Amino acid sequence: MNYQTELKDDILFVKLHGDLIASSDTQAMVEEVDGSGDGESLLCAVDLSDVRFMDSSGMGVLVSLLTKFRNRGGELVLIKPSDHIRKLLIVTKLNAIFTIAENDSFAAQFLKESIY
């Protein structure tokens, strides 16, 4: 898995590419995202549009990130998960805890409104 991070308007955007499975890359991404802005970032949008496959470890990564942001008073949204990933979220009922945005603009709007 590859990823890029960008801080834009106080929102940390994370773009994932490849398979979201247990690996050293996944752990590095979690640590980088959690430590962004000295661990003070409150808002995060994770773009899953280029994620082909996700296993239970990948789901755990998303839940872990969501928990980290919510524990510090913030929020996390998922952007445009592929059909396969969307089905996994539905089957595991994780769609009930994650907000899913269809694009960056909707994600940014939702995140900004979530903390006010």
Rank of each mutant, 00 (worst) to 15 (best):
S49T: 14
F53Q: 10
D55W: 07
V33E: 03
S24T: 10
S24F: 08
K93R: 13
T67M: 11
V91P: 01
K80T: 03
E113W: 06
V63Q: 04
N103G: 13
S36I: 09
D10T: 12
I11T: 05
F110T: 01
K80M: 08
I115T: 10
Q27F: 12
G60D: 12
D38V: 11
S82N: 05
S57M: 10
G39S: 04
V61S: 09
A96C: 06
S105A: 15
H84I: 13
A101V: 01
A108Y: 02
E6D: 13
V61D: 11
V14I: 13
D47P: 05
L78Q: 03
R72G: 10
D19F: 10
L7D: 04
K15V: 11
K15L: 08
L94R: 05
K68M: 09
D25T: 06
V77A: 01
K93V: 03
D19P: 03
E31M: 11
N95E: 09
G73M: 12
E113A: 12
R86T: 10
L43P: 02
L111N: 05
V51Q: 02
F110C: 01
R70S: 07
K15Q: 11
M29F: 09
E102F: 07
R52Q: 12
G58N: 09
N95P: 01
M59Q: 13
C44W: 04
M29L: 14
D104E: 14
K15W: 09
I21E: 10
M59F: 09
G58P: 11
K93G: 00
V77R: 01
G58A: 04
M1C: 09
L88I: 13
G18I: 07
A96E: 05
G39K: 03
I115E: 04
I79F: 00
A101G: 02
G35L: 08
G39W: 06
D19W: 09
K68E: 06
Q4C: 08
D10S: 15
E6Y: 10
I100W: 02
